[in-house]
Structure formats: C-alpha cells, structure tokens
Design a protein around this nucleic acid. Structure first.
Length: 459
DNA sequence: TTGGGG
C-alpha cells in the first residue's frame, strides 16, 4: 500500500529559513562528492544544489544511508534531484540540509537536455504528480539559460600560483589515474597554467651518481599516454597514499574541485598531496569555473607565446642566442610527443643539471678535444636529457675558451652562485634549439636522443 | 552517530 503523498516544494531560498524543519525541494546538482564511509556506521556523500532562487550560493545537502547502493549516485553535475522531507540545519552560522535515511527520500533525473520524468535512481517508488513534473520542467527551462556555477572560494588558486606547503583549492581536469608501480597510484591533474619554477637543491657533483629524475613517477609514462595529454600547461602529479586511495581511485576523468590540497617539492618538481581534510567535488564541464579555465587556456593558445613558460615573460634571458629567430617555440612535451623520431625544435627551458659538472671535463679528450656534456632541461611541462656534442659544443661555448671562462658560462646557464656550488640554484629561462635523433634504426622510439644545435651561450 | 568545505 502506497501512502498518498502530496508534496509542497519550497524554493531553496525559502527552505533555508526553515531551520530544523522537514522540507521538500527540487534542485540542480551543481557539484557532488564521491561516496565515502562515514566515521559512524553509515555511508555518506554531499551534494550542492541550486535553483533560480539561490543561483549564487546554493545549499549543501549531506546524505547518510546505511549502505553504499542507497546513496544518490549522480551521473553528471547539472542533473536534477528531488528531495522529500530533508531537514534544514544550521551549523556554525551556515545552513545545510540533512538527508535522514529514515524519513527522507530522493529521486535523480537527467538535466536540461532530457524531457524524461522517470528518475534514473530513486530511494523509494513514487509516481510523479503533475505538480512535481511542473517543478522539474521549469527547472530544466531555467537551466537552459543558466550557466552552472558551483561557486568559487577565497582559497582557489590556479597551478600558476602554487606555493610550497600552502593549502589551497584547485579546479582542474583529472587527465588520468595511473598505477605507477605496484599498489602505488598517482593522479595527473591539469588546469592549463604553468606551475612556477622551483629552485634546484641537488648538488651538482651528485649528478653522475645520483641524477636529477626526469619525472616523479618511478618509470616514465609511455609516449602513447603522453600523447593524450595537453602539451601546454603543467601536469601536476598527486601522490595517492593508503588513506586517500579509496577516494582517489574512484575519480572519473574530467573536471573536479580539490578542496584543501597541498603541494610540495621533490627533486625540484611539484607534487600534490592529500591532507586529511582534502575533499573532492565533481563538476560539470559547463560549470563557469571550468569554462573560465578553458577560456584562459584557449586565449593563451591564440598568442604567439603560447608555448613559452609563463614565468619567462616577457622574454627569456638573453644569455643564449639561436640561428632561428623566427621559428616558434615548442614545449618539451611537444618534443616528447612529436610524431617523428627525427625533428628539430626551439624551446624555452631551464638547465637544471649538468654532467660532467666540472668545466675542464666538458671536453672528452685533451689531444682531440670533443665536447660531450649532458644537460637536464626543464620547462613547466616536462624534463629531458640532452647532449651538447662535438661541433655543436664549439658553437655553444664559442670555441674552446679557458677554464675560467667556461666555468663562468656554466654558472650563468645553471644559475650557480660562484661562491657556493651547493647552494640552491635558480637557472634562468633560456632558448635552445634541439634536434631529436635515434641511435638504433631498428628501434627508433626507444633509442631516441636529443642534442642542442645552432645555439650560442653569449654571456 | 556520521558531516557540516577551511
């Protein structure tokens, strides 16, 4: 026997004044959290809903159910949810709603593009009355001309504003969730901006035995995976530990908001870490905060300097010159993902390590001098090893200068303070021409290497 | 009960 039910729906703005009362509401889900186990006995998720009356703030709804399958599983932000008998609460001066599993019900409907009144998930069987359908239909009509906006916060910052050990909110696209080694997972996040450069704290002398890594993951991502990533903008690696694993491994690829995430430095590279208070909210691709990120990125791509690190603006240092002034820049990820093994590029990079480090060793043989120096190059998108070899070295170093001159050149290029070789280095952005080639014709991609050419160190 | 975006 189904109870006869007649619901009166309150607008969100009216509902939030009904503290401690049970209300019925229909709203658009503007963002939602992934299901979690609560610290009590229940499962938990949170949703933020909006309607025409509350389009600048919305209402957080906390849902508790005794099993995972009873939680609302929103298919996409922008979908519509109908709640009955949820309790409006006030906590620390903020209003939220509590879904009481004993009395509350919900039903989820597709968003503005649908005309269906059949829920794709509901907590109880309930047939919509005309009034209910009117509410859903009018919400869809309103949504049609409304730009979803999950709201921003004072803590929000793009990757370009990263600071060490400072909690912040990040709106970004989850590009991939990878198992980087056995039972070790990593998230790859991107927001279209360049993370700022970090200083290099490794010792120059260690480079031979303990080289600066090219990436944080234990083995480099396959080229095919890199090819799916954007080649402009930093891809932040986030280490997934045991406590964040349950949450992180459910993450769909797409736009999300991380609340209270922190970034640290390792080997001069940024990586993100989950804090106990870190929360993830899934966003719609149409959310205004997402469209802002994409617009900023598209505007960047339209400029002539889209592939120059943004912290190199207005121009890289003039300590290097190339013979190809009119060639556009590429990023190091463009280099790594280029369709041909053999090619030429011009990049704006920092030289973060050098091997050998001692200028007298740049030439491999005293009798028959031959330059052979390995540089570790970095831009906001990647790191690569590259060689300064033979006649390219002659051009790069301007012949065969004295040890003092060569040492001075090295110090400028690497941002070394001459008094203390082990002090943190802050290398300048420099432009370099690179060519890629392979050592083994039968296995071109695995044996691909890079060399610097047509570039002069003029300092 | 839980969580309540800080």
């Amino acid at each position: 026997m189904r109870k006869k039910e007649n619901y009166l729906y309150l607008s969100i703005n009216d509902a939030i004044s009904c503290i401690n009362q049970k209300v019925n509401m229909v709203g658009v889900v503007v963002e939602y959290g992934l299901p979690e186990k609560s610290r009590g006995t229940d499962y938990f998720c949170t949703l933020k809903i909006m309607d025409e009356s509350s389009q600048s703030y919305g209402l957080l709804v906390n849902v508790f159910t005794e099993s995972l399958d009873k939680l609302p599983r929103v298919k996409s932000a922008g979908d519509i949810i109908r709640f009955s008998r949820i309790v409006i609460q006030s906590h620390n001066g903020k209003v939220n709603a509590h879904f009481n599993k004993k009395v509350s019900t919900f039903a989820l409907y597709e968003g503005k593009c649908s005309k269906s009144f059949i829920p794709y998930q509901s907590s109880s069987s309930y047939f919509l009355k005309d009034l209910d359908m009117d509410f859903i239909a009018s919400l869809r009509t309103w949504l049609f001309n409304f730009q979803l906006n999950s709201g921003t916060s004072e803590f929000y910052q793009p990757l370009s504003a990263l600071r060490e050990k400072k909690c912040f909110d990040l709106v970004c696209k989850v590009l991939r969730v990878c198992e980087v080694s056995k039972d070790a997972w990593m998230l790859f996040l991107w927001d279209g901006t360049d993370a700022p450069p970090l200083s290099c704290r490794t010792k120059l002398k260690d480079e031979l035995k303990n080289p600066l890594p090219l990436q944080l993951e234990p083995t480099p991502l396959p080229r095919a995976v890199l090819c799916e990533f954007p080649s402009v903008g930093t891809i932040l690696r986030v280490i997934v530990d045991k406590t964040s694993e349950k949450l992180a491994l459910q993450l769909p690829c797409g736009w999300v908001k991380f609340l209270n995430i922190e970034c640290e430095e390792r080997s001069g590279l940024w990586f993100g870490v989950f804090k106990p208070s870190t929360k993830i909210r899934i966003l719609s691709d149409e959310d205004s905060i997402v469209t802002c990120c994409l617009r900023r990125y598209e505007e960047r791509l339209l400029t002539k300097w889209d592939r120059m690190p943004s912290s190199a603006f207005p121009w890289p240092s003039h300590i290097t010159e190339t013979d190809h002034e009119d060639v556009p820049f590429t990023t190091l990820t463009d280099v790594l993902t280029h369709s041909k093994v053999t090619s030429k590029f011009k990049c704006v990079v920092r030289v973060v390590a050098m091997c050998p480090w001692y200028a007298d060793d740049f030439l491999s043989a005293k009798g028959n001098p031959l330059y052979r120096v390995r540089l570790t190059l970095e831009d906001p998108t990647a790191r690569i090893h590259t060689l300064i070899y033979a006649e390219d070295g002659e051009i790069f170093f301007g012949g065969y200068p004295s040890l003092d001159v060569l040492t001075g050149m090295r110090n400028k290029l690497l941002g070394i303070c001459a008094e203390d070789l082990d002090a943190p280095r802050n290398p300048p952005w420099v432009q370099l021409c690179l060519k890629s080639y392979c050592l083994d014709e039968s296995d071109p991609w695995s044996s691909r290497k890079y060399r610097i050419f047509d570039t002069r160190l003029v300092a």
